[in-house]
């Protein structure tokens, strides 16, 4: 009879909740207890440097293009040695949703996400991080990559001396 299964179901439910009542809560008491997020956790964004200490960011605008909430803005420029760099670079953390698409889009591994999730300010303008706030002294998650050694435009080294390059050809050579 259905009445018995119904009653059984209700009692079973009550029994289940009773058991949970006696269980240890899973709550983490946040300000006192803190969780250590994994290194791949997506929180505060940083700009890293290459192993030689140069800024990795070449201000290619891919992160700002990938950003679904338009929280990244920048202006690219050129240094005397031909290196492309961000004249200014701004991330509005009051708008950032920490989706990680910028870090995924970055071709030079400059923009990376860190596990520092405690971003909270009294003044919302303090959440506007400028380049000097974002730039760290270190390579972040990749210790070896240097974009300019692989891109053949002759900034980190002379033309033709990059990682996968032959020496520049002699245009006037007649050898077949």
């Amino acid at each position: 009879m259905t009445i018995f299964t119904d009653i059984k179901a209700i009692l079973l439910g009550l029994w289940t909740t009773w058991k949970h009542m006696l269980r240890r809560p899973v709550t983490i008491q946040y300000p006192e207890e803190k969780r250590q997020p994994s290194p791949r956790y997506r929180a505060r964004i940083v700009l890293t440097r290459d192993p030689d200490g140069g800024e990795r960011c070449v201000a290619c605008y891919l992160c700002s293009a990938a950003c679904p909430v338009d929280c990244i803005s920048m202006q690219s420029g050129e240094r005397e040695n031909g290196r492309r760099f961000a004249v200014w670079f701004r991330i509005n953390f009051s708008r950032c949703i920490f989706c990680g698409l910028c870090a995924e889009a970055c071709p030079t591994l400059a923009i990376q996400m860190t596990p520092d999730y405690e971003i909270c300010k009294r003044d919302i303008m303090d959440l506007l991080y400028e380049k000097e706030d974002l730039l760290i002294d270190g390579c972040g998650k990749d210790e070896s990559y240097n974009f300019y050694q692989h891109a053949g435009i002759g900034v980190a080294q002379r033309r033709g001396e990059g990682a996968e390059e032959k020496a520049p050809v002699d245009v006037r050579g007649l050898v077949p």
């Binding site: 033309r159 033709g160 990059g162 996968e164 390059e165 032959k166 520049p168």
Partner: peptide, 22 residues
């Protein structure tokens, strides 16, 4: 292909146009 790439030297084509032959 993981061989080496051919490279060129660029020319200065004046104040208006940038040359990047690679």
């Amino acid at each position: 292909y993981d061989g080496k790439k051919r490279t060129h030297l660029n020319q200065d084509l004046g104040p208006n146009i940038e040359h990047e032959m690679n």
